[in-house]
């Protein structure tokens, strides 16, 4: 409370309500006397009983310190929980999402696709031509090897090896 507040408070205590008539001030005074009577209606041992019932509470000392969980553990737990929530949400979304609508290709897309297929066929044709030539060459080599292996020299070589 500042000095100004204290001064104002003290001023109010001294002056009371500034606009009261004499009759109202008399009622106010009667209320003060009623309050006085109420205070003295208490048992003379009121203060002693209050003291006896509260003294232990006052000397109990500060409240026990509440342990605070490890911050890094808490942070890791929060991250794991967030990931788990996101995973659950994703799985739920995949489970309940509506079937994808049938795709319809626009005309321009269809024409582009046809051109791609033609290009692929052309490339395959070039590849086939090269492959055919290779096959022909391999076939000729095989024939020559067969003819050469039917000679006596070949049989002699086999016999020497077996011995």
């Amino acid at each position: 409370m500042t000095n100004r507040d204290q001064h104002e408070s003290h001023e109010l205590r001294l002056t009371g309500h500034p606009e009261l008539s004499a009759a109202d001030r008399a009622v106010e005074s009667a209320l003060d006397q009623l309050a006085h009577a109420e205070r003295h209606a208490a048992s003379p041992a009121l203060e002693a009983r209050v003291m006896a019932s509260t003294q232990a509470l006052l000397s109990r000392g500060p409240a026990p310190v509440v342990s605070i969980p490890n911050r890094s553990f808490a942070r890791g737990f929060r991250v794991a929980a967030a990931i788990g929530v996101m995973a659950c949400a994703g799985a739920a979304w995949l489970a309940i999402r509506p079937a994808a609508p049938a795709e319809s290709f626009p005309t321009a897309a269809v024409s582009t696709l046809a051109e791609d297929i033609d290009a692929l066929i052309t490339a395959t044709s070039f590849a086939d031509a090269g492959f055919t030539a290779e096959l022909d060459k391999l076939d000729a080599d095989t024939l020559n090897f067969g003819q050469s292996s039917t000679g006596q020299d070949w049989l002699d070589a086999i016999e020497e090896t077996s011995l």
Partner: peptide, 26 residues
């Protein structure tokens, strides 16, 4: 009224004893 009085002061004593009260003139 006396029970209430004791209860009020028990609350105040508990707060003072635990250091939970900060005097601000109120």
């Amino acid at each position: 009224a006396e029970e209430i009085t004791q209860s009020v002061f028990a609350t105040v004593a508990g707060t003072l004893g635990s250091g939970g009260y900060t005097e601000q003139g109120k």
